[in-house]
Each structure stands twice: as structure tokens, then as C-alpha cells.
């Protein structure tokens, strides 16, 4: 009974999150919510590899950038429809993630953190590089046009894009939930907790880690695609290494190894900088830092762990929510 009611509450909540903003929000607010959806997917990607599998990545901004540029290039150069760019970005990011994962994950621990950080630092430079300028637009970047709602739906472009992104995110969130609560998810957590024992249980560490890196790059890449469409513009400076750190912060604040935590983390990284800005125009960075520290004290296991206590079926420890 409790499980049933818990699931019902969740479904109603998700429906409300999909529909309510369409009616109560201005175009700019809808844009912000679309960015929350993108960030949530990006943070979920970081969470798969860092939260669940224990491989610290400080470079996922690179995959976000690749996803964004794949979308921008496909829409601008080839006039392809926006929706067709998402699967392409997913496949390319998964491929790049897999290839980078092969050598990077053998490093492990702090060296992996540094290597991924170096990747994040390199990406903006590569995007500006002369050789690729024909594709990337160099420092100018690429502008794209926001798509209209299809099938004559009575929605404006902002409303439609929010709904579209939300639907994509729901599918990807459910997939991630399935993944972490099954055979593969247990293996990911086993590797994080006790790699020697995981190996003795027949888990091929190198194989599983590289595939996790690929899956996580895929999630963050799709997030980048959505963000590019929402912003209608990509340029190298939007993807500085600070972005990677921001995604990492989102994962920790929302809750490491928590699916719902990705949503809370995304809300944090989208709205807290604005709030900090309103509090103090002179030192928004300091205010942001202060709020971050407060969150770490109030919710040491992430916002998700606080929310879990209030949830109708709060006692179901067996599942990763």
C-alpha cells in the first residue's frame, strides 16, 4: 500500500512539474526551467560515474559542450530538425566517453580527477582552434533558431521546448533508475565500495568502468544538446572549465548516488547564483560560497537525503531513489 501511494505521489508530482510551468511562467522563466531540465540530465550523468561508480570526474563540461556543438552544427550547417540531433549527440558523446574512459579510468582516484579537469580546460581552446573554425564558428560560435511546436499545438516555442525537454528527461531518468537498481547498478556500487571483492565476484572492472563513463557522457551530452536549443547559441566561452565544476557541485549538493538528487542539484546550480546576485551585487561569489557551505551543513548527504525523510514511503532503504 505504501509503495503504491508513493508511486502515485511521484507520478502526480511529475505531471505537475510538466504542466504547471506552462501556464504560470513567463517565457524567460520557462527558459530557466528548460535549463534546469538540461542541468538535471547533465548532473545525472556526473552522478552515474562519480556518485554511483566512485570515479571522480571534473570534466563533464566537455561532454556537455560536445553535445551542444553537435546539435548546433547539425541544425546550422545541415538544417536538420532539432529532435534528430539528440540521438546523434548521444551516440557521439557515448563514443568519445568510451574512448577517453579506456585510458583515463585506469588512472583512478585523484589522477582521474586531474585528467578530466585537463579535458575540461582543453575543450574551449579546441573549439576556437582555426582548423575546426569552419565547423565550430571559432570564437563567434553558432546561432540557432528555437523550434516551433509541431502538429499545430497551441503552444509557443518556449512552452514547447520545455515540454519536449521534460519528456526526454523523464525517459532518461526512468532508464537511469532502472539501471542503478538492477544487476549493472549493483556492480557499479560494488566497484565503488570494494573493488577487490567486486573483482572476485566476477566483475570486469575495466569493462564496467569504461561503459559507465560512456553512459554518463551520453547523459551529459544530451543535456548539452537541449541547452544549446534553449539558449539558441553556442560559443567556446560558454563551456569553460567552471562549468564542469558547477556540474560536480550540483551532484554533491543534490545528493551523490541519488537519482532525484540530480533534480535538486540542477535547481541549485540554476537558481542559487541568481539569488546570490540579488543578495549582493558586489560579491555574489562570496554569497554563493556561503550558501553552498550552509547546504553542506544542513544536508550533508545532499538535498535528496533530506527529502527522502519526508517522502511517503520514507523507509524504503533498499532502493536508490
Amino acid at each position: 500500500m505504501r509503495i503504491m501511494s508513493s508511486r502515485l505521489v511521484l507520478v502526480l508530482l511529475v505531471l505537475a512539474m510538466a504542466v504547471v510551468p506552462l501556464f504560470v511562467s513567463s517565457g524567460y522563466q520557462l527558459f530557466q526551467f528548460t535549463m534546469v531540465v538540461a542541468y538535471a540530465l547533465a548532473v545525472l550523468g556526473v552522478n552515474l560515474v562519480t556518485g554511483y561508480n566512485g570515479q571522480i570526474s571534473l570534466g563533464h563540461g566537455a561532454f556537455y559542450a560536445i553535445g551542444a556543438y553537435v546539435t548546433a552544427i547539425m541544425m546550422d550547417h545541415w538544417d536538420l530538425p532539432y529532435w534528430s540531433t539528440l540521438p546523434v549527440a548521444a551516440v557521439i558523446c557515448a563514443g568519445v566517453g568510451f574512448l577517453l574512459g579506456l585510458p583515463a579510468l585506469r588512472l583512478g582516484g585523484l589522477y582521474l580527477a586531474l585528467t578530466t579537469l585537463a579535458l575540461a580546460a582543453a575543450v574551449p581552446q579546441l573549439l576556437k582552434y582555426d582548423l575546426f573554425e569552419g565547423w565550430t564558428g571559432g570564437v563567434q560560435g553558432i546561432s540557432i533558431i528555437k523550434p516551433d511546436a509541431p502538429f499545430g499545438l497551441p503552444l509557443n516555442a518556449d512552452q514547447w521546448l520545455y515540454l519536449f525537454s521534460f519528456a526526454v528527461a523523464v525517459v532518461l531518468f526512468i532508464s537511469a533508475w532502472n539501471l542503478v537498481n538492477g544487476r549493472i547498478g549493483r556492480a557499479l556500487k560494488a566497484i565503488r565500495d570494494q573493488p577487490l571483492a567486486a573483482e572476485a565476484m566476477g566483475i570486469d572492472l575495466a569493462q564496467l568502468k569504461t561503459r559507465t563513463f560512456a553512459a554518463s557522457a551520453m547523459y551529459t551530452g544530451i543535456a548539452g544538446s537541449i541547452a544549446a536549443i534553449a539558449v539558441q547559441f553556442v560559443s567556446p566561452d560558454s563551456f569553460a572549465s567552471a562549468l564542469s565544476i558547477t556540474l560536480f557541485v550540483g551532484m554533491v549538493v543534490g545528493g551523490a548516488a541519488s537519482i532525484s538528487g540530480a533534480v535538486f542539484g540542477a535547481l541549485f546550480i540554476q537558481f542559487i547564483p541568481n539569488i546570490a546576485d540579488q543578495v549582493s551585487k558586489a560579491a555574489p561569489g562570496a554569497v554563493y560560497g556561503l550558501i553552498l557551505i550552509v547546504f553542506m551543513f544542513v544536508a550533508p548527504g545532499g538535498i535528496a537525503s533530506l527529502v527522502r525523510k519526508w517522502w511517503p514511503a520514507g523507509g524504503s532503504r533498499a532502493r536508490s531513489t
Binding site: 556500487k189 560494488a190 566476477g202
Partner: peptide, 25 residues
């Protein structure tokens, strides 16, 4: 004792069945 400390008793045990499974991501 080398268990997966953050996981439940049941999940720890089920990791032992990992090699019997064939399904992927």
C-alpha cells in the same frame, strides 16, 4: 570481511550472482 559497505545485505549477496547474468546496460 570485504563487503560493499553502503549496500544492503540483499544487494551485497546479489552481487555474487553478477557473473551468472548476461544482460548489459
Amino acid at each position: 570481511v570485504a563487503l560493499f559497505r553502503s549496500m544492503t545485505v540483499r544487494d551485497n549477496m546479489l552481487v555474487g550472482a553478477h557473473h551468472l547474468g548476461r544482460t548489459g546496460f
